[in-house]
Simulated scan of single mutants.
Amino acid sequence: MESGGAVLIVERALGNNNDRKHIDALRENGYTVNTIARGTNPVPMMSELNPVAACFQYDYPDLPGLADLQNAKQRVPSVPILMITQAHSEALAVWAFRTRVWDYFVEPVDINRFLAVVEVLAAVRQADARTPGRKERGVASAPYRIPAEARVRPPDTPSTAQTRALENALSFIDRHLHEKIAQADVASICGLSPFQFSRAFKRHFGTTFQEYLLRRRVAEAMHMLKHPGASITDVCYNVGFRDLSYFTRIFHRYVGEPPREYRERAKISANGKPPELPDPEQVLSLPMRNPKH
């Protein structure tokens, strides 16, 4: 099989029980996989190989491991970074996207979505190779501070059962974002009744489950629309919408403009003329906009 390019796996797990199926899937689909062991600086190999992506893999992210990712993004901004974590928190996901991580996965990794993201990155890399002199997109010079709450603790750290259940809900959403997600099913997975789950989710996150789910889908869509090779229809279905007109309406509601206009402005931003383009993670916290149609 023809090689799809090189992908770096940057090991930053504290233990040895990470999911490896996505690595096997990369090899099966023609990608060359290089591994960088924990404690080894990934920057030299990222600079030398110029891979399709550098995939930072964690079980319970600690301060040194997150600092390594942040440093790598600053030193080699042209290499897209994917983040895979066994443990998940909202603060960790927000920090990752603010650090300009290309995409964020929670174990067990959704292999189809993972391969789809890598395929898009490979296509972008090939397009860049055919366009000499294209300006690479940089990152903000001032790194975001790694918040204490983003350093996800191992499972033996005391926490309430309900908080753990709600973190499971966010992990489930991230893993199944491209599918239909019913609130009753998520409540059952968390060991709560629909009524208990609804009240706990609203109290903990300050928004309803359905509101968060829509915002999460739109945030992912904003992220994907920055990829030159992704069509609006593909993005619609990949983030869990099943109707293009409904997706367009919901996207407009939260972002303030339809997907097509947002994508065009993203292209302008990528070419070095940055308009005021909202970050995807902002949709998870900003008040909903109500544009006139």
Rank of each mutant, 00 (worst) to 15 (best):
R145E: 10
R145C: 03
R145Y: 05
I146Q: 01
I146M: 02
I146G: 01
I146N: 00
P147D: 02
P147T: 02
P147I: 04
A148I: 13
A148V: 15
A148M: 10
A148Y: 11
A148C: 06
A148Q: 14
E149R: 12
E149M: 09
E149N: 08
E149I: 10
E149T: 12
E149D: 12
E149G: 02
A150G: 04
A150F: 00
A150M: 01
A150V: 03
A150N: 01
A150L: 03
R151Q: 14
R151N: 03
R151V: 13
V152W: 00
V152R: 01
V152G: 00
R153A: 13
R153F: 09
R153L: 15
R153C: 05
P154F: 04
P154R: 06
P154Y: 06
P154I: 09
P155S: 07
P155K: 11
P155G: 07
P155E: 03
P155D: 04
P155M: 08
D156N: 13
D156K: 14
D156A: 12
D156L: 15
D156H: 15
T157F: 15
T157G: 05
T157W: 15
T157C: 11
P158S: 07
P158Y: 08
P158M: 08
P158L: 10
S159D: 12
S159Q: 13
S159T: 14
S159N: 06
T160D: 09
T160G: 14
T160H: 07
T160N: 04
A161F: 10
A161N: 03
A161H: 07
A161W: 09
A161E: 08
Q162D: 08
Q162W: 13
T163H: 14
R164I: 08
R164L: 12
R164M: 12
R164G: 09
A165R: 03
A165E: 00
A165Y: 02
A165L: 05
L166N: 03
E167D: 14
E167G: 07
E167P: 05
E167V: 14
E167M: 14
N168S: 11
N168A: 08
N168G: 12
A169D: 00
L170F: 09
L170H: 04
L170G: 02
S171L: 07
S171F: 11
S171R: 14
F172L: 09
F172Q: 05
I173Q: 06
I173T: 01
I173D: 01
D174T: 08
D174K: 13
D174V: 13
D174G: 08
